[in-house]
Design a protein around this nucleic acid. Structure first.
Lengths: 145, 145
DNA sequence: CCTATTTCAGATGGACTGAGATAC
DNA sequence: CGTATCTCAGTCAATCTGAAATAG
């Protein structure tokens, strides 16, 4: 699609502009991750476990924004790749404790580089100051301190 | 999901912030349109036909951002509702000419109000000046004059 | 008995692909 | 002939729902 061909109604609509940029953002990140065979959900999960340490799957769901049932499937996958570990919680046997492996950390650092490249290509038309400004406004709109 | 619980890596990532706001944007618009039984795709199509006048389906696809095959299905639907009209193009019989009906125009105006409400709730945490600023930056990022 | 967590099976809507039919 | 348009059938990943199994 060519954004310039869209009708005025849409080209001036904040929700539409945000949606279009989100499409480009997804594509930029996916293009960087695809050669490594990694999806955005997997990056979110690795980042969540890495930052907060061993977590239950409900916690992972809240932090990553993934649905509880999708966390099940992706953790399955990431355990299979040797990037996460899943063990029953001895304190509360309803829960699993998900933790990151050494190889998971290494992978995450590689992904960080890729994801960071995607940001640059996504925001290439903005100056550094404008990028900062955009980030500030997005965070404010999301009520993120 | 609660955005505040996300890891630092994501909370500072432009593509992630954009994606999160896009989710909220979708929900805000959907919530406004749902009582009328209308989807965003339908609004995009009505807006495209209204602005540019009678169009082929390929043109509609380029302008609305919908895939050619989805245009087929949505035009079917909108014709069924009496909001669009589909006729063979006498100049080029491969094409259809899609045009908006009087009832379609009326509907579109009602949708405009709804969609506009959604923008206000989406950007409620921003001042008017900040909303303008955000729109400017989004358009620049999308390389939209 | 009620609630929380994990898991599964499947529904849903959106974006996309490939091929056939028709017309240029 | 090759190409453009419309149409259909169907895949695909992402999101979400409901209910079962287990444990607190």
């Amino acid at each position: 699609m060519n954004v310039d061909d869209a009708p005025q109604r849409l080209r001036t609509l904040p929700s539409w502009l945000i949606g279009q940029l989100a499409v480009q953002a997804r594509h930029a990140v996916d293009a960087e991750l695809e050669p490594l065979g990694v999806r955005r959900s997997q990056y979110s999960l690795l980042a969540s476990v890495e930052q907060f340490g061993p977590s239950s799957q409900v916690e992972l769901s809240e932090r990553s924004g993934l649905d509880r049932s999708d966390v099940v499937r992706w953790v399955d996958d990431l355990v299979g790749r040797g990037w996460l570990r899943r063990a029953p919680d001895p304190q509360d046997r309803r829960r699993n404790v998900i933790s990151i492996t050494a190889r998971g950390r290494t992978t995450l650092r590689a992904l960080d580089t890729r994801v960071s490249n995607a940001q640059r290509s996504l925001l290439a038309t903005l100056s550094d100051a404008q990028q900062e400004q955009l980030i500030r406004l997005l965070r404010k709109a999301l009520a993120l301190g």
